[in-house]
Structure formats: C-alpha cells, structure tokens
C-alpha cells in the first residue's frame, strides 16, 4: 500500500460514485430512520422532536405494545424453528455430499439448492396451493405414508400457521447454509480425515471430533446470517397471509408489523415516525445479535489455521 498524506485524485474518483449512491440510499436512510424515530408527525405533516416518546408508546402502550411484542415473540419462534430445523438439515446434507466417494453428490447439491433461487413470493403461493385443503394434494400424498388423518388446513389455523410458514421458509433456504457448511467442510484438508482414519476413528467420530470443531466458526456465521435474515423477513408472510399476517396476527413478525405501521392497512393510517421507531427497534435487535456474535464467535471461538 502506498501512503499519501491527502487523498489523491484518482482514489477520489474510484470512491465517490459508489460511496455517494451507497450513502444516499442506504447509510443515510438508516441514520435518518433512527433520527426520525425521535420525532412525531402531526396532521399537517410537520414534525416535532419528542425524544424517546415513540419507544415508550411502542413498548409500553397497550395499543401498540401488544402488537409489537406479539410480532417480536413470533419472530423469535420463527428464528428458533430455522435454527432447529434448517441448520441441522443443512449440516447433515453438507456432511453427506462433501464425501468425495459419494456418487452424484454434486447433483444432489445442485438440485437441493434450486428452491433458494425462487422468489419468496412464488414459493409462498406454491405452498399455499399445495397445502390448500380444497386441492387435496397434501392429503393424498400423506395418504401414501398413512398420515392423511393428520392433515389439516395448517396455514389457516392459529396454532400451526406460523410453524407451517417457518417450515416453508426452511424448505426454501436450506441451500444457503448448506453451501456455506459444504464449502467449509471442503476446506478441511483430506489428510486430516485420513490421519484420523488411520488413527482408527470411524467416519462418525471423524465428523464429530475433527470436522465439526473445525467448522464451528462457519456454524456461527450461519447462525447470525439466519438471525439477520429472519428478523428482516417479510415477503413470505406477506404473500401467503397478506399485511394482516392472520389468522389473528398469529403469523405477524417484525417485518410485517413494520410494513403495517409505516403504510397503514385497511382502516388504520400509516405513520412514518412510528414506522421508523419499529425499524429502529429491529435495528437494535439485529445490532445486539451481531454484537453477541462478534463477542462469542470472533473472540471466544478460535479459528484454526488449516
């Protein structure tokens, strides 16, 4: 690297166009949103500084806080389901397809990744049709394995709607952690597993004792990416359940709650300042998670030189 006391012209030229667009349409809006959460807008459209009053309303005023905490709680469940279902499945599949002796491993990987490429909207509709009791496809299919009695209109029922949507999301996005974990597994030199095999370890023991500890940083990365993705999700629920996230807000997560707050829905009017407050809360939640991630994964989890 060359050191220049001032920014030379060519560096300026390289930086400015991109940084300008990024600042105007991403960085500044984030900051502006945080600032806006400290204001209140009256009917004339004028804004007044109100300090943390919006947060007080959002967190403690029943009219708002019930909806907010419901969305937060649902979002947490949404995340936990991904952690418990999506990531273990990804890990399992990645472990299986990273075995070079397995014939067709690449084909499996390519095919299993496919749903990830589809628009969440499309995926939402596809599953809506498949799970629709009117059509009866799911019931027929479950019948083949003798489970048709258990079928129900899962998407329409309060206790099951959120879980069902979360599982649809898992179905779609299994490919992303799969790729990350798969790549990390490939990064482990063959000689290491060979050495463990010569040491008499079974493939299972090699996986748990050698490979898994070495890919822990990747599992940490997968977790935080899952968290950010989940606490920012919107499209799937909006396309299946609309902005009202029914039935009875049982599938409402922070993304849909933000949308309704900002734009309003049906009779209720939207509020930019309250919307900004919700967005700011989402920002803080993600920020805390990222800080925990950096503390735990980057500080405590040692990265091993492979």
């Amino acid at each position: 690297m060359s050191w220049h006391p001032k920014i030379p012209l060519h560096v300026f030229v390289f930086l400015v166009p991109g940084v300008l667009i990024y600042t105007i349409f991403s960085a500044w809006p984030l900051i502006d949103t945080l600032l806006l959460s400290l204001y209140e807008q009256d009917d004339s459209g004028a804004r007044h500084f109100v300090g943390l009053a919006n947060y007080n309303i959002l967190l403690f005023d029943n009219e708002w806080s019930n909806g907010f905490w419901n969305a937060m709680w649902n979002n947490l469940k949404f995340f936990v389901i991904h952690m418990l279902v999506q990531n273990p499945i990804s890990l399992l599949i990645a472990a299986l397809v990273s075995n070079r002796m397995l014939k067709g491993a690449n084909t499996y990987r390519t095919l299993i990744f496919f749903p990830t490429l589809l628009s969440v909207v499309i995926v939402g509709f596809i599953w809506q049709l498949i799970l629709n009791p009117l059509w009866g496809v799911s019931e027929t299919l479950l019948g083949y394995i003798g489970l048709d009695d258990y079928f129900d209109a899962w998407l329409g029922m309060e206790p099951t709607a959120l879980i069902t949507i979360a599982l649809i999301s898992v179905w779609q996005f299994v490919g992303i952690p799969l790729m990350l974990i798969y790549t990390a597994l490939l990064g482990i030199p063959d000689e290491l597993s060979d050495a463990a095999y010569v040491d008499g370890a079974s493939p299972r023991r090699i996986f748990w004792k050698i490979k898994l500890p070495l890919i822990l940083p990747t599992l940490g990365l997968v977790s935080i990416l899952t968290f950010i993705g989940n606490f920012n999700a919107f499209d799937l629920i909006y396309s299946i359940k609309g902005g009202l996230a029914g039935p009875n807000f049982s599938t409402d997560i922070l993304g849909t709650f933000f949308y309704r707050t900002f734009f309003g829905f049906q009779s209720s009017l939207g509020s930019p300042t309250m919307g900004a407050t919700v967005a700011a809360m989402m920002f803080f939640v993600i920020l805390v998670a990222v800080m925990i991630y950096f503390y735990l994964v980057q500080r405590k989890l040692q990265r091993y030189q492979l």
Binding site: P189, E191, L192, D194, A195, A196, I210, P213, L214, Q302, Y304, Q305, L306
Partner: peptide, 9 residues
C-alpha cells in the same frame, strides 16, 4: 503425512 495432518484444534 506430508502436511503432518495435525488436528489444528
């Protein structure tokens, strides 16, 4: 092994 293949962790 050539690269020693020591378990890094």
């Amino acid at each position: 092994f050539q690269s020693y293949a020591l378990y890094p962790h």
